[in-house]
Design a protein around this nucleic acid. Structure first.
Lengths: 229, 229
DNA sequence: GGCGCACGTCACGACAGCGTAACAAATGTC
DNA sequence: GACATTTGTTACGCTGTCGTGACGTGCGCC
């Protein structure tokens, strides 16, 4: 549920197994493939939270996988860490140009890789790294499953919690009802769009405290957003 | 249960005796072997809390023992400290890649090794370092196998003890039933998820005292957590 | 052997939380 | 201002989850 999902694309089987093992030990949910095309499929059917991408793989080259991940809407914003054997500067530039978030040259220690992954996740989605996220006077602790506003605890149901968490991971950004259904309920759920409204109301009710403005903004005919800072 | 169990794999008999002697003096339960294969057997039949592994030993090489410890489910998460004569950087990388937790180069003072072992145990499982952990008005003494609340002794069964200890090692954090089964019952035990509920109830009953709130929090559709401070 | 204890499982009941529909209110359009 | 569209709000039935008591079993101890 809250374990960050990694997609590992690596054709060195031994290395892949090692990395997979260590990350599982760290509480990650890892899926592995040695093929670029399969990677794109896997990423499409269940969007990972981060992609570890070998630079040179069979099927499609790493740079191509990177580009195509970016092109696809659901995977466009997934952070990517490139693994490469060459410490060549040209490659580094090309990798980052293609939209990779970080760059690790082989040989690396799993510990180093774990640290890098942690760093990228902390930067991109703090809640996935188990860190408390703060937006305005709201604070959400994902590991303790706790929400506070101005220091006082908020009683909140599971769905509202996930909804709020999604908002707090992208403060200020407007989400359509469909996007919220995908992100909070899961992409395969056929739920009425209007159901979102009800949960927005419940969320508003839950985080409402007297004398404070409602941080949930309605954007007419577009969706909802959390007031960022 | 209370004394941390060490497995020492070392073929320098004099050194092994010295280390063993010193650690026994510190209250550890030490078993020693000079053979890699025997080490794996010993580890399998009675999972140690930490393995001290010489890099170069007869039978199987240290790195191989390390790998095979990791591959076995019951020993997969046991911390390993590598002892090596070479301060060579390549080895260091390879050792950590294989999943060792720390690395001590010979010659070392027993005092240093004791400190490192303590540090690793504290990091991995605070209760094994023999320190009493305190959360709120609860206190748990892992060596004496005793729990007190507001100073008064609590009668508690073995499973509830391990459950409470796990909670107290991670106060405030929410664990799913599956995670609790892995952590308290051991991974690979096929126990019904709902069994956790029953033991949660028994734990609640055990630590309940009149006029005090229940420190075990139910997080609906997520799991349970111990109220942190 | 008899006893007590701790354990894992089950079944039942309670209820929180969910999704939906229906109606009220607000907002935008001409 | 009249209308259409979008959103807010409420009520309701249903499902899934949780708490709880009871039961059978295995094990060690006396």
């Amino acid at each position: 549920m809250s374990a960050p999902k990694l997609l590992l694309v690596e054709d060195d089987t031994a290395l892949a197994e090692l990395v997979e093992y260590r990350f599982r030990g760290e509480g990650y949910d890892v899926r592995t493939t040695d093929d670029g095309d399969e990677a794109l499929l896997l990423a499409a059917e269940d969007t990972p939270d981060l992609v570890l991408l070998d630079w040179m793989i069979g099927g499609t080259s790493g740079i191509e996988v990177c580009r195509r991940l970016r092109r696809n809407k659901s995977t466009a914003h997934v952070p990517i860490i490139i693994l490469t054997a060459r410490s060549d500067e040209d490659d580094r530039v090309r990798g980052l140009e293609t939209g990779a978030d970080d760059y690790v040259t082989k040989p690396f220690s799993p510990r180093e890789l774990i640290a890098r992954v942690g760093a990228v996740l902390r930067r991109v989605r703090p809640a996935l790294a188990g860190e408390t996220i703060t937006v305005g006077d709201l604070a959400l602790d994902p590991t303790a499953h706790r929400v506070t506003r101005r220091g006082q605890a908020i009683k909140i149901g599971p769905t509202e919690f996930r909804l709020l968490r999604h908002f707090m991971e992208h403060p200020g950004r407007v989400f359509s009802r469909g996007q919220l259904l995908d992100a909070v309920w899961g992409s395969g759920s056929d739920i009425e769009l209007r159901t979102v409204d009800v949960h927005i109301r419940r969320l508003r009710q839950a985080i409402a405290i007297p004398g404070a403005a409602d941080p949930v903004r309605t954007v007419r005919s577009a969706g909802y957003a959390l007031e960022g800072v």
